[in-house]
């Protein structure tokens, strides 16, 4: 299942539509890291509202996306982690340290807009 990516102004928005396999996740990582420079984006939002769980592989991959995108000169926000998914993540020992999170797409966009307006 491919994750659709939308360009909105200076930001890229990737919306996960369903449960992702490892292969989907790796594909998403490559696509985002490639496109962020091509699109000259300042920030990337990955909306994971539809993800059924976030296990160690998924969170490691998302963390890597954020780190790689930072190396490519942009900022990543993960939005839409569901309460029960967050609960399972911390029980498992996953905290997505160093990754910015926001409640939903709207909040993620607010965060990026604020950040880049103030520095611009």
């Amino acid at each position: 299942m491919e994750v659709p990516v939308l360009k909105q102004g200076p930001f890229l928005i990737a919306t996960v539509q369903a449960a992702l396999t490892d292969e989907d996740l790796v594909h998403l990582r490559r696509a985002m890291v490639e496109r962020v420079v091509i699109a000259r984006s300042l920030g990337v939002i990955i909306d994971v509202t539809a993800m059924d769980i976030m296990d160690s592989f998924a969170s490691r991959t998302l963390r890597e996306v954020a780190q790689m995108i930072r190396l490519r000169g942009a900022e990543t926000v993960i939005v839409g982690i569901q309460p029960e998914v967050a609960f399972a993540m911390v029980q498992l020992g996953i905290t997505l340290e160093g990754v910015v999170t926001a409640l939903d797409l709207e909040e993620g966009l607010n965060y990026l807009k604020q950040k880049f307006n103030s520095s611009a």
């Binding site: 449960a19 396999t21 490892d22 059924d52 309460p83 609960f87 399972a88």
Partner: peptide
């Protein structure tokens, strides 16, 4: 198959009356 297995686990948990949180813990 990883996705299939956890989705079946979650479905069974929900059908047994497990809460959303517990079903997610099982799936994870």
């Amino acid at each position: 198959d990883i996705v299939a297995a956890r989705q079946k686990g979650r479905a069974l948990a929900l059908s047994l009356g497990f809460s959303e949180i517990d079903s997610t813990l099982v799936a994870t």
